[in-house]
Amino acid sequence: MAKCVDDLKVVGNKLLTEDFCVIEVESGKKLPEFRPGQFVQVRIDGSPATFLRRPISIHDVDFGKNRYKMLIQVLGKGTETIYRLKSGDYLNVIHPLGNSFTIPDDKSKILLVGGGCGIAPLLFLGKQLKARGFEPDVLMGFRNSSRVLEIEEYSQIGDVFVTTEDGSLGEKGYVTNHSVLTSVKYDRIYCCGPDSMMKVVAEYSMKNNIFCEVSLENLMACGFGICLCCIVETTRGNICTCTEGPVFNIRELKW
């Protein structure tokens, strides 16, 4: 699938919290065939502090309208600039980048596990799974109830389970402590979130012999395999997260 540079028009910016928003953009061209798990590289102009593009997950896609959404968490100057965009503004991107989650051929029982902003690629994945007849469950972990994002959106995919670290919503603790893991037997887990969370999910999946893919968020300069900065140590050696990932089977990773 060919990568390209495109200027996208902002058609919506839904502010979720003080530091999260969902930005929707539209291309004047037909969108490439995005697959769940892929990302885009967003150019941020206007400050010497935002020299490089920012890699952002594809959160949801409307192929009919040539639109897609990105879930943004403000972490620095670059994401702050995106957070402040308004309808009618333009955003220069390189897309689509990276590999994707593997969608099974069999009738697997699937769990999507997301933490914080890491839930982003799981909405598009969940919708694609549902369209193919799967009934995935969703397990999301947040710090507290004020940080909980987009539950209604994910409810369209399947049953949603939540943990918060302080117990202010759902079960108290981390995603790997949630009771659904003992009551349902899953064949596959797809996970995206902070490294610390993905590592415990990977450990849980290994121990219980569950197929598991994680989506990494390594720092990168280019996003298409020329800078060799975003590498991850794997059984195949150091490889680029941007071209060989961001989605990896946990058995490949040297965690």
Partner: peptide, 16 residues
Amino acid sequence: GNAYPRMAETPSGMLN
């Protein structure tokens, strides 16, 4: 090559 992290964005530039 070297271990991750290998890159840092700096004002109007980057370190690799």
